[in-house]
Simulated scan of single mutants.
Amino acid sequence: QNSAEETSDDDKKAMLAKIYAIATEYLKEDSIFCIRDISDSEQVYDIGFIYSESMGRRLHFTMKEYLINFLKYLQNNTDYSITVLVGKTVTGIRNISKSYGTANMLHSLQGFREKKNIYFYEEEYKVSETGLIICKKQLDSLIAAIEQGEHIGIRKCVDEFYEEMQKTGITGSTMNLNINYLLFQLIHLASELDSEVNQEEILRIISETTSEEGISRGGKAHLCRMAYAYGEYLSQLRKNVSRGLLGDIEGEIKKNYASNLTLKDLSEKYYVNSAYLGQLFRRKYGCSFKDCLNKKRIEEAARLLRKTDMKIYEVAESVGYKDADYFVNKFIEAMGCTPTKYKKNY
């Protein structure tokens, strides 16, 4: 999510460690089935859990009851927002990877679903017996309009899509099937333009950020707004907006590190999608925008501690930290000692 990119990697790791500790506390002897950093990616912070029927049976719970109870325990013991993605039920250890793959599908497309704390693959991805995309003609027209970035054309195609659904009585699972087709096609288009970033994550973020209060997720207005935004994003990819952009962003950090600099503000200034900008930044520098900003602030703080008689809170404020305690913690993480000790050594 956009806000997630504004959180430093160190903070994400701390959150993950806390959630993992709470999860293993709940699971007790079953904690061996809880896997930290299951995605094995530096860009993703998640926890995996392999559920077995025997776990629920011991408590006389169904799988759904067990997982909902597990989620409630996590929510009651942490202030973090937690989402559980439950993959397809499989039999045999060899098929666990298939279940994990379906959970990843939920992660990619949850931005266009009604927001919930727990998603079950088998509820979200019910496929019709025929497996047909009922509104393929209308959706293909919509995809073409999104590619061309035509707002009027997009609105017309969305209207036609919903009219067709209403006419044929499409609801629920068949509606999801049609939306899945649309989203996967959009991911494919973006991947052809830039395959080195996580296009599934960017689509999810665009879907979530275009759903505001008063706009129903997956509804007509949401689909229009998402389509407009995605058309603009595809246009940015075609223009290769990343060329020279990161140098400008690096300059912004060096010049304005002490101000309230955010990825969202910079994306608006340079007319680029914030989720894409965050991934471009990470790809080049190997860390998040927030981590790079913190690094610059700590470097400047260290210089001030060496060269001036400023007090700790004054140094914190001058480099952009309003909370002196937070500054001290960040300084210790980066330098291995407190600002006071660092100053004494110099």
Rank of each mutant, 00 (worst) to 15 (best):
Q138D: 06
H151G: 07
I82Q: 00
A144R: 15
L71E: 05
I96S: 00
I82P: 01
T89G: 08
S141L: 08
I118H: 09
K137Y: 09
S108N: 12
K116I: 05
S99V: 02
I68T: 12
Q110G: 00
I152P: 03
H107C: 07
F70N: 03
N77K: 05
I146C: 06
H151E: 15
L85K: 08
R113G: 01
Y80E: 01
S128W: 00
K156Y: 13
T78V: 03
G111L: 03
E129F: 12
K126A: 08
Q75D: 05
F112N: 10
R94T: 14
F112E: 04
K137I: 13
E123Y: 11
Y125M: 10
G111R: 06
F70Q: 07
S108H: 11
I118D: 00
C135N: 09
L139H: 08
Y125H: 04
D140P: 01
H107A: 13
Y66A: 06
L106A: 07
G111F: 00
K137C: 06
T78L: 04
K64T: 12
N76C: 04
E164Y: 11
E163N: 15
I146F: 03
K136C: 00
S128N: 14
S108K: 11
M165F: 04
H151M: 08
N77R: 06
E160Y: 13
I154K: 02
L67V: 06
K98R: 13
A103V: 01
T62I: 02
I134L: 11
S108V: 11
L71I: 04
C135Y: 02
Y119S: 05
Q110V: 14
Q138N: 11
K126R: 13
L132S: 13
S108L: 08
I133L: 05
I96Y: 08
I154Q: 00
H151N: 14
G131V: 10
S108R: 11
L142H: 05
H60D: 13
E147C: 14
N95R: 15
G92K: 04
L71C: 02
T102F: 05
L71P: 02
K72E: 09
E164C: 10
E124L: 10
M105D: 10
V158K: 00
A144S: 14
F61E: 04
Q148C: 06
E124M: 14
K88D: 07
A145D: 08
I82E: 01
V86M: 06
L132N: 15
M105W: 12
L109S: 05
S97K: 10
E164A: 14
E65F: 04
V158D: 00
L106S: 07
S99A: 12
T91V: 09
K136E: 05
A145L: 00
K136H: 08
T130S: 13
